[in-house]
Write a protein that binds this DNA or RNA. Structure first.
Length: 208
DNA sequence: TGCCAGGCCCTCTTTAGGGCCTT
């Protein structure tokens, strides 16, 4: 499958995990993702997964995912095999993508699977588009931009849905502000890695 | 032994330090 050129077609994903670092033994406990095509949500994926050990009370409290819920969940390998199929052929987006990419890479390494898309970070783009936001946490941006949400935070599918809303809002912002008809995924990646000061001039050049 | 993330980004910077963001 050929990767889409446009930023409006991608998969937005979010992991809940046992901690911050797969290199320190942390594992995924939930994956949530939404697939957008031409800016419309066309599919989603959600799965709890049993990491093989008890999660801390902090994680239970932070995510609302309890050890009882995980006791009956399939293992990480089973869920991640299905997820590897789901993401094939799509570019990938996450809020603070370096975190989710580390866990995706670590979990897929365990089942010897790879993905064909490339990542873009919604947080890095938001920092450049909305430099005056109070902060660039997902919840803060959702609130300040008045994006649709159901009040659920720190669950994988809910966070993926909110990140998708943020992503589409940022595309609208760019297209309106610079009168662009369609923003390539590669342009969003470029924005995420560009200094704040040079973003306007970069987009002006695209407009020209 | 004791400690333990990691990448981005700003600034009192680049021979560094600390805050932000993710769980």
């Amino acid at each position: 499958m050929t990767l889409s050129y446009a930023a409006h077609t991608a998969i937005i994903l979010d992991f809940e995990t046992t901690g911050l670092s797969p290199n320190m033994g942390d594992r995924a406990i939930e994956i949530g993702a939404v697939k957008i095509e031409q800016g419309q949500v066309v599919d989603h994926f959600q799965g709890l997964m049993n990491p093989g050990f008890r999660v801390s009370s902090f994680i239970e409290s932070y995510t609302g995912i309890t050890n009882n819920m995980l006791a009956t969940a399939p293992n990480c390998e089973t869920v991640m095999t299905e997820f590897a199929d789901f993401i094939q052929g799509y570019n990938l987006i996450a809020h603070n993508a370096s975190f989710d990419q580390r866990f995706l890479d670590a979990e897929l390494d365990r089942i010897n699977r790879r993905y064909s898309g490339s990542f873009c970070c919604s947080m890095l783009v938001a920092r450049r588009l909305y430099p005056h936001a109070t902060n660039h946490k997902l919840g803060t941006l959702v609130h300040q931009l008045a994006l649709e949400n159901d009040g659920t935070f720190h669950r994988a599918l809910a966070d993926a849905k909110m990140t998708a809303s943020l992503w589409c809002h940022m595309l609208d912002t760019i297209e309106d502000q610079y009168q662009l008809s369609s923003v390539p995924f590669s342009v969003m990646q470029k924005i995420s890695k560009t200094t704040k000061a040079s973003v306007p001039s970069y987009l002006q050049k695209l407009k020209a």
